[in-house]
Simulated assay, not measured.
Amino acid sequence: MITLHTWTTPNGRKPLILLEELAVPYDIVPVNIGKDEQFRPEFLKLSPNNKIPAILDDEAEGGPLSLFESGAILTYLADKYGRFLAPSGAARWQATQWLHWQIGGLGPMLGQLGFFAKQDDAFALERFVKEADRLLTVLDTQLAGAQYVAGDDYTIADIACYTWIIAAGERLKDTLGDRLDKPDLQRWLALVGARPAVRKGMAWKPRGV
């Protein structure tokens, strides 16, 4: 059984969506980052970086396995169940490069933009708006020539990018203005967002929240 320790952030929703796509049994342990639950000693054992998400697979090959970092978790689950990431060849590396692009670029830049949008720092805000727009243009250009982020097939790269773009649309619409209204980006958002597993993963909230 997979136990997912997570919260309602873009990174926290990534493995939740994938587990729904895989239709495998799993449990959720909410980690309320607003109450600093990610700093509890029991969570530190799973995630030395004190960040969600983290998983524990008590049926992993070789014995129970815990993993942190959303990209590692997505790759592990995709490989374990043989879906949403090609086992080898060019298709695998196309998806992997876009997954790492999201982890190293799109996510951090949108996260920083969210921070500086609340600060009185016009220079920093302009810098991160420009970089966010550049990254959104990169993604839109890629999607102009492909149905999904890494090509013709839906992969973990789509899941990784989708949660962050949706969060940007919800939280940064006033800051980004029409920069999210790129045609192929919007086409892809509608395509991915229509998937039942994506809808369920995006709608999850812990009780009482």
Rank of each mutant, 00 (worst) to 15 (best):
D181S: 12
G193K: 07
P108T: 00
G89Y: 07
T75E: 02
D27H: 13
R83G: 02
G62A: 12
E61V: 11
N49G: 08
T96K: 11
S70P: 06
D27R: 13
P15K: 01
L67N: 02
A167L: 09
A203I: 08
A168L: 03
I159V: 15
A86L: 09
I156N: 04
L139N: 04
Q142M: 09
P206Y: 05
Q102H: 14
I166M: 08
I33R: 08
Y148C: 06
L176P: 13
V198M: 06
D158S: 08
I33L: 13
L18M: 09
W93D: 00
S70C: 13
L4S: 04
L56F: 05
A146V: 00
R179A: 14
G63L: 07
N50Q: 11
Y162Q: 08
L19Q: 09
D79W: 06
K205Y: 08
W164Y: 11
G82Y: 12
K35I: 01
I103N: 06
A124T: 11
G104C: 14
L136Y: 05
P64G: 14
R179P: 04
W204Q: 03
A124Q: 15
Y154H: 12
Y26G: 06
F43I: 12
E126V: 00
R199T: 08
C161M: 14
P48R: 05
Q102Y: 03
E59S: 12
W164D: 00
K51L: 13
T3V: 08
T155V: 15
R207P: 13
F128H: 12
I166Y: 02
P53R: 02
K205M: 15
E170D: 14
K182P: 10
D178M: 09
I103H: 01
E61K: 14
T141L: 12
P206W: 04
E42C: 03
A197Y: 06
G111T: 00
E69P: 02
D153I: 03
T137H: 13
L77D: 00
T3N: 03
I165G: 07
T3H: 05
R195W: 12
P25E: 14
P87H: 03
Q97P: 03
T9E: 07
T8S: 11
T141V: 11
S70V: 10
